[in-house]
């Protein structure tokens, strides 16, 4: 296969970026998208040019590190991660535009690499159950109905890649945040801190500069793990009921 790639190149966070066009004549349809980029990078290095930087790690669709906006869709045309996208999805001779995730809260670090530490900070605001190591009850003490456990799992399957933010026209992080809130709202282990958790996490989400949800459902359609927007509705419920019934909490991390 031969393809033409239009790739966003940006030297550093503060540098001005631009698209560069590369002709790629050695593409096999069996390559993953990232392997195609590897081969291109080898060619660039051989020419003495800097390779295109992009995030990647596990290359099996679970670590959530890869993050390319391909032809107008996060992770490209299939509902999967970029590392699991293969070149047979594209046509010979096609022009493919590759951009980084675009969001105020995800500044570009270099080329296609963005800073997603905002997600970590949201989790630090309350995405946990406050138990210390040791001194916990036996695992079978609390029975959890299978349906509830399964639904919690569906929410917990989020890999934190940020495709939801990238897909959303408002760069909203609602799907990501609601997945964590849902997991702990569903499971009894999370109930003790249920109200504080959602208040703190929403506050942190807003302060990171993500947009608001306008229910376009693009996040759900693009999420490689098919996290449902039902989680967003659940977070809305959790948030309103918390706000009208909880004690006022100090926002920020901590116990």
């Amino acid at each position: 296969m031969k393809i033409t790639l239009k790739v966003w190149r940006q030297k550093s966070k503060d540098a001005k970026g631009e698209f560069k066009t590369y002709q790629h004549d050695h593409v096999s349809s069996d390559m993953s998208f990232l392997e195609m980029m590897d081969v291109l990078n080898t060619q660039l290095i051989k020419k003495g040019e800097e390779p295109i930087h992009f995030d990647h790690d596990c290359r099996e669709g679970i670590c959530g590190m890869c993050s390319m906006y391909i032809n107008g869709q996060p992770h490209g045309p299939l509902q999967t991660t970029t590392c699991q996208l293969h070149m047979r999805t594209f046509k010979d001779g096609e022009t493919i535009t590759v951009e980084p995730w675009r969001a105020q809260a995800f500044p570009v670090i270099k080329d296609l690499v963005v800073d997603r530490s905002a997600f970590d900070r949201i989790q630090q605001a309350g995405g946990y159950v406050s138990v210390n190591t040791g001194g916990v009850p036996d695992a079978n003490v609390i029975p959890i109905p299978k349906k509830i456990a399964d639904e919690a799992f569906d929410a917990a399957a989020c890999i934190g890649c940020g495709a939801c933010v990238a897909a959303c026209k408002n760069a909203s992080a609602m799907l990501f945040v609601s997945a964590k809130v849902s997991q702990f709202a569903l499971l009894p282990q999370g109930h003790a801190e249920r109200k504080e958790r959602v208040e703190k996490m929403v506050e942190q989400m807003d302060s990171e500069g993500f947009g608001s949800c306008t229910n376009t459902r693009a996040c759900e359609a693009e999420c490689p793990k098919a996290i449902s927007v039902a989680n967003i509705a659940r977070m809305n419920r959790e948030y309103f009921s918390a706000m009208v019934s909880s004690y006022e909490v100090k926002v920020g991390g901590g116990e």
Binding site: K6, G17, F19, Y69, N71, G72, Q73, P77, T97, E99, R102, A103, Q104, A105, F106, P107, A167, K169, N170, A171, S172, G209, F210, G211, S212, T214, N215, T216, R217, A218, A221, E222
Partner: peptide, 22 residues
């Protein structure tokens, strides 16, 4: 929401994942 996208927007938006009215 406009500001949340950041200074540089996307060059290509496929629009396949949501409906026009949304």
């Amino acid at each position: 929401n406009r500001n949340a996208r950041g200074g540089v927007g996307y060059a290509v938006i496929s629009g396949k994942s949501s409906i026009w009215s949304s």
